[in-house]
Simulated scan of single mutants.
Amino acid sequence: MRKPYRTLTLTAIAAVAVAVLAGCGAPAESTTAAVPAPVGPAELANVTLKVGDQKGGVKSLLTAAGLLDDLPYKIEFSTFTSGPPLLEAASAGAIDIGRVGNTPPIFAAAADAKISVVAAAQAPVADDALLVPPDSPLRDVSELKGKTIGVAKGSSAHGQVLYTLRAAGLSTKDVKLSYLQPADAFAAFGQKAIDAWAVWDPYTSQAQQESGARVLADGVGKTNGYVFQVAGRDALADPGKNSALREYVARVAKAQKWADTHRPEWAAAWAAETGLKPEVTNAATARGVELPVALDDQVLKSEQDLANAFSDEKLLPGTIDFAAFADQRYSEDLRTVREK
């Protein structure tokens, strides 16, 4: 019997994807395209869906919910350090779909990546934190002027930094942004090579639990907290992959709803999948879970506002039309899941 899924590490694939995207920057073309006809069960059984994951989040969620036991297709999970390299891989065709926060699709759109946002969820924003060491003299965001903030470029934390600084009357020009992936930023944070660290769960909870990190500010009242399933356009154009993606995004939405009433079970699966301490995953899930929402005008407008803010800060080359990177072909399937 074949295994329904397996996990890969995509360092090499991410490198290929970066090369594919290098030099991109042309205006975005519309994602409107003919939707392939669905395939039958026999053909679907031969499909291998390549799914990008971050720190085991989606895989552990599906595992805990028992939703990897009856797959009508195969899945290969691949682990990425953050959303931007995941979307680079999706654009290059190295993966078919992956979950990212609110900012990576904006940077991908600015690079004219071959991706489309196909599903949305609302996540808690208290974990979108700007952390400082426990003995830091910093007590207010306004005191960050001239300081160094570690953040993964193009990640949801990048958006959180922008909005948090704006709320304090500052801009990204008033601080030094040190672009670091989470593992490198955690090390720099522990060595006090950076003054603050902008990050998300489970890293926020890990830093609090393991190094006594203090939250200087969080995303409450600032960031929109949206997370997205983002698919590569080549996968969306393929009949077999499109049928698998339709089923997959609905399956993830079901798991998200399940997690809302089964947080301890999800936390345990998350810890088992990643090697994180149970205290970390329990703290992360206690803050809240992602719940599916419609990929509607409200979501698109909020994302456009964020994109415009990045453009205003000259952190994006020009402007983008976020709606041009949204594909609502699975909206009815997802509405059915949300309303159950």
Rank of each mutant, 00 (worst) to 15 (best):
V337T: 08
T11Y: 11
Q229S: 12
E210Y: 10
L62I: 00
L71V: 04
L177T: 11
A111N: 09
R246W: 12
V35R: 06
Q206F: 03
G190I: 09
A323P: 01
E29G: 11
L71N: 11
A89Y: 01
Y330M: 04
P36T: 06
V252W: 02
R246Q: 13
V299D: 00
M1E: 09
S142Q: 14
M1N: 05
A250L: 04
Q328I: 00
A111C: 10
K74R: 12
F80W: 00
G154Y: 06
S156L: 10
A45G: 13
Y226M: 14
E247D: 15
P4M: 12
A89G: 05
A271S: 11
P134D: 14
L86S: 01
A294L: 12
A123T: 11
K340F: 08
A185G: 14
L131C: 12
R329A: 10
A193C: 04
H158D: 15
N308S: 13
P292I: 12
L86E: 01
G169A: 15
A111F: 02
G221W: 06
D112F: 02
D140E: 15
V289R: 02
A207V: 00
A283G: 02
A268W: 03
D327N: 11
Q191E: 14
Q181F: 12
R287Q: 14
L86R: 03
D333Y: 00
L170V: 05
A168W: 03
D234V: 08
K153D: 08
K222T: 13
P85R: 10
Q54P: 05
S156I: 06
D234G: 01
